[in-house]
Design a protein around this nucleic acid. Structure first.
Lengths: 231, 231
DNA sequence: AGGAATTTGTGCGTATGTATC
DNA sequence: AGATACATACGCACAAATTCC
């Protein structure tokens, strides 16, 4: 009756609902239909639906209130191309974009931590924006072993798309260290060189362990906050 | 049949099993009896037992292997009391401790975000140390609905142990927002009131969705960094 | 204030699929 | 290949919390 290769129904349902939330078809505060009604519409048993909803609850998408209903709680939007971007406007959210400032292949300076197999790297400097508001500058060092040359046109604001589709490089894990530092001398306005800023240092690893990328980001703490979700 | 005031059966069972593990009657690697057998012995339905076992799995006490059995896993690392503490010395690591500065139950001020069911909370102020070096001050608001009164002796530096064992409150998820702010006027040295600091705002949720706690931490970015590991 | 209707929570029992031994 | 054990899925009955009249 059931295709042997298919995912469990409750996984299908929960993923469908997550897509609905990600796409905005369900938004924060929405109440879902009653469980029995919803299960009937979907052609599944109530218990199966409840298992899907439990999944959403565990992931923080849903709040279940006995006697009242199931309510969408939108705080997360993982697994998109911004999954590793952790700066938001102080009020929450904001569409991230980036302006390329410079792009060069060069020897890794000695103040970088060890990463990658090459002694050269691509140094990418960008101005980051949220809803077009400049909020940070970043300097990314992609190890030189992945590609000989990067053209500025390749990047624009879709750096990780480029990694994934042109280089076959998929970042699966990263570690951030957040503190404070003075903005670098090359920063454009509105940050100014030497001014005290939030500071993020990141090392990123590809699928099976090798560290591929090092980056540092200086952000204006009045314009953006770093978000971290823990489990 | 069921005492009206009793906990759900599946909670009773899962807590009984946790006690068995804590007391050493079940140790790492032990295999539990088959579900149907165990359910029969306990006089409950298989589904109810499975719910108890799912609880243990979520808390890291148990590994369930289809076709094989349920195995005790005393990892300790997943449920350790520092699992959600994210400040480290600039060189990495450091043993976290805390000094209690003040503890009061009071009305939640209006500048707190909405959380919990009560309009009162316990305000806990602590000085945080790493390897005895003071690195931050924090103010925690625990929702007032969990307990009427907290005695200072209860806390010291084992706040989450208190949550877990005295209140039955288990924090399963949290969201941090990291930026910068001026240290509060009540801070002891070495931070000083009004000085610019790293700033962490956190909302924490308990197992099944309700937000239970709000906290804010001011840290000296010269003495500590916030670590975030992403997947 | 209070009772009825609605909605989720708990618990039971069963049948069938799938992984492990 | 067969036996064992967990995974998925269905459906039902009643309890408890909330909402509405």
């Amino acid at each position: 009756m059931q295709k042997t290769n298919a995912l469990p129904r409750y996984v299908e349902i929960s993923e469908m609902l997550i897509r609905d939330i990600a796409a905005g078809r369900l938004i924060n505060g929405d109440r879902l239909p009653a469980e029995r009604e919803m299960a009937g519409d979907l052609g599944i048993a109530v218990g199966t639906l409840r298992k899907a909803l439990a999944e959403l609850t565990a992931q923080g998408y849903l709040e279940r209130v006995q006697g009242s209903g199931n309510y969408v709680r939108q705080s997360d939007s993982s697994s998109n191309i911004y999954a590793f971007f952790r700066l938001e406007l102080p009020g929450g959210g904001g569409l991230p974009t980036a302006d390329l400032l410079s792009l060069e292949r060069r020897k890794k300076p000695s103040d970088l931590p060890g990463f990658g197999r090459s002694d050269e790297g691509h140094r990418i400097r960008r101005l980051r924006r949220l809803n077009d508001i400049p909020i940070a500058v970043e300097e990314i060092w992609l190890d030189g072993s992945y590609v000989d040359h990067i053209a500025p046109d390749d990047l624009a604001d879709a750096l990780y798309y480029y990694y994934k589709n042109r280089l076959g490089l998929r970042i699966s894990r990263a570690e951030d260290r957040i503190g404070a530092a003075e903005a670098p001398e090359w920063t454009p306005p509105p940050l100014s060189p030497g001014r005290n800023c939030g500071f993020i240092e990141r090392i990123s690893w590809e699928q099976h362990g090798a560290s591929a990328e090092y980056s540092r980001t200086w952000f204006d703490p009045a314009r953006a906050v770093y978000i971290s979700r823990l489990k």
